[in-house]
Every structure is written in C-alpha cells, then in structure tokens.
Design a binder for these strands. Structure first.
Lengths: 193, 193
DNA sequence: CGGTCTCTTGACGGAGTTCAAAGCTAGTGG
DNA sequence: CCACTAGCTTTGAACTCCGTCAAGAGACCG
C-alpha cells in the first residue's frame, strides 16, 4: 500500500532501501468516511495527505457561507491547504472526503525531518510544486480569460471520469458558477445538439 | 549587483565562497528597455529572470487579442513563464518590461547545472515555489470569491506603490475587469467619500 | 408511501462589457 | 510658448453573462 508513495518518489529520485524504510515509518495510513474533514479552519493544516483511493476536495467557505471548490484530488494525488501547511498559520480551506477514501498522512514535523534525512526529496517536492504551480496557473488563466460554458467543456474534456463521479453542484462550484447556471449551460449546449 | 541574488539565496541556504562564484558565473546581467519582451510565445521560455530594478509584467494574450495581466514583478522578484520554463513547451505568456529595467538572466541549462552543483539550492527553490503557490492561491481565491470593487481595494492596500507606478488599464487587467469598469468603480467609491 | 437531496426551468435583477464620444495629460515640433 | 497629436481616463446607454428566488420534477432510501 505504502508502495504507491515510494513508487511516486522513485519516479523522480532514487531511494535506498534504508531511505524507503524511513519513508514508510513517517507516514500513517488512514481511512476517511465520506464528508469527513482532514483540514478544518481555523486549525492549522499540520498534515499533508497522499490519496490512495477515493476522492477529496479542498474548498473555501466565504463570508456568506458559500463553498468554493478549489480542487479535487483522486488516487495518487497530494492534497492539503499548502498555505497553512507551509506557514503554520490558520488554515483557510477545508479538505473533505467526497467518497469513502484511503490516505497516507504525514505531519509537518515528520515531513521536515524527512527532507533533512533524505535531501534528495527536496528535488521531488520542488518538482511536485513546479507541477502544482503549472496547474494553478492554468486554472487561474481559465477563470480569467474564458466564460463559464467554455470552462465546463474544458472540464469534462480534462476530467471525463470526474464528470460522472461528482454531483453537478460540486462541479459548478469548481467552475465558479451556481448550480442553477450550470444547469442552464448544459441545457443550452444540448439544444445545439 | 549580483550580490542581490546571493543575498536572496543566503536568506534560505548557506553558500560557500566557491559556490557563490558558481552562482555569479551562471547569471548574465542585462538591461531591458520599456516595452521589450523577455518571453514571447510561442518560443519556449528557456530563461528565468531575477529583477534588480524596474518593473515587468507577465500576461496572457487571449484569442480575441485581449491581454490579461497575470502578475507584476519588481526589484527582488523572479519572473518568467514557469510553465514553459519547466516543461520546455511553447510559452503561453509574454514577459514584458513596463519600465526600463535591469535583470539577471539564467538559462534553463545553467539553472539545472547549478541545482546539481549546489544541491542546497533545491531547498531555496522549493521554498520559492512554496511561496509562489501561496501567492497564486490567494490570487485565485480572490478572483473566485470577491467582486471587482473589493479586489481593487485589496490591490491598492497590498501594493500601494504599484498603484501610482502603473497606468490604470494594467491594474484593471490584473483585476480581471475592463479599464472602463475600473474607472466606474473608482467613481463610485469616491462618491461615497 | 413520504422525506430529502439533486437537477431543471422561468422571471427578474445586478455586475460587468461594449461602443462611442468627450475630456485630460504629456510629449513634440514649430 | 503655443498647437498638435497620441495615449489614457471618464461618462452614459444598451447589452450579456450570470445570480437570486421560487416552484416543480426526478431519484433514492427508509
């Protein structure tokens, strides 16, 4: 099970058996039920999560009580409130299971220890963060420069599996529109065959 | 002059004199005039830029020919199309000088060499990217969950110097509205004393 | 069969855009 | 020192995208 993480690390850096053992002992396996929270404001997000199975979301709850989905995470993805995890400040985002899921958890202290004990992991995480920057860039650009109908079409193209796996209103929130308006977009699109 | 970069590195990691010399020889000093481009699609962004003086912007030109400012960079900031720089793919963003500026440039090859020769720089860049993720997170959240007038108020609070340094339409583009609408926002705000 | 949760549909309202015209400002050349 | 231009900002009217509210239609589950 933990092999999924090791495999992930080894896609970018080499690990000795001893180092692999260090990694194994640093993580903790945990099952989370649907609707359970792994990060909850204002408590700091002092854990990072590697998803083995299931599906999670990270979302922001604004001052009007409306949730804005920032990202979804599925098998093989990392997910936490990185802002809080890095700075130690109060978290701003909720991380919640959308399905019964399995994750490997590492606390910030153990994560920092691991980076000291296995310096090459700095390369892995530098690259992971590079990819995260790229993904966020795309998302921001998408929000800024395209309308909702276009964003919807790109979403179902990019994540065809999530389209069926998630309720419509979670996708609407991710796209930055109300569920009502997304429904109207779909109606409009399907009327133009 | 190059000391600005060394100083920056040394805020996060220790560098020997020998390593400092490696750094110095890896960068190239360059003056850029207002309106000059450092990155231009579709050529890959194979250089990263450390700004010593002046002001630059990175922006996306959409299919209608409208520019969307993604970020501004001033003294002490890094700026390039990271997506292209990391992947080697065609760049999507323009990087342009908004004022006569001075930058230190490093090519991707030399950057990768530097990370191999000075492994501790992986820590510096990991942290740099952590901060970049945090900043992008904030920006995305801002775009998603607040209206234009609020975004404007936050902008002038966060970057009071840029407010006077840049023409209004660049700020409007950064905020995700038209210059016309930003003008109306300002009129509305000042009418409420 | 009766809730609860999700999606749809329609009428109305607000935020932001587009287009066009006019005012303002700064540089430039005579 | 003035006149001209070119670029930036303001203002108003009509329009589009998207949100809010409210009511109804399915779907699922006890």
């Amino acid at each position: 099970m933990i092999d999924l993480i090791l495999q992930n690390f080894r896609m970018h850096v080499a690990l000795s058996e001893q180092e692999a053992a260090l990694v194994t002992s640093a993580f903790q396996y945990r099952k989370v039920r649907k609707n359970q929270l792994l990060v909850e404001p204002p408590y700091p997000a002092n854990t990072e999560h590697f998803i083995v199975s299931g599906c999670l979301r990270i979302y922001y709850l604004d001052s009007d009580g409306v949730a804005h989905n920032i990202a979804f995470g599925v098998e093989g993805w990392w997910l936490t409130d990185l802002q809080s995890f890095f700075t130690g400040n109060a978290s701003k985002y909720h991380v919640e299971a959308l399905e019964d899921s399995e994750v490997f958890i590492i606390t910030k202290e153990r994560w920092e220890d691991l980076l000291i004990q296995i310096p090459s992991l700095n390369i892995y995480f530098r690259k992971l963060y590079q990819n995260s920057i790229i993904a966020q860039n795309d998302r921001l650009l998408n929000m800024i420069s395209t309308k909702a109908d276009e964003r919807y079409l790109r979403f179902i193209k990019k994540y065809p599996t999530l389209e069926n796996r998630l309720p419509q209103y979670h996708i609407a929130s991710y796209l930055g529109v109300t569920p009502v308006f997304l429904s109207k977009i779909k109606a409009r699109l399907s009327s133009k065959h």
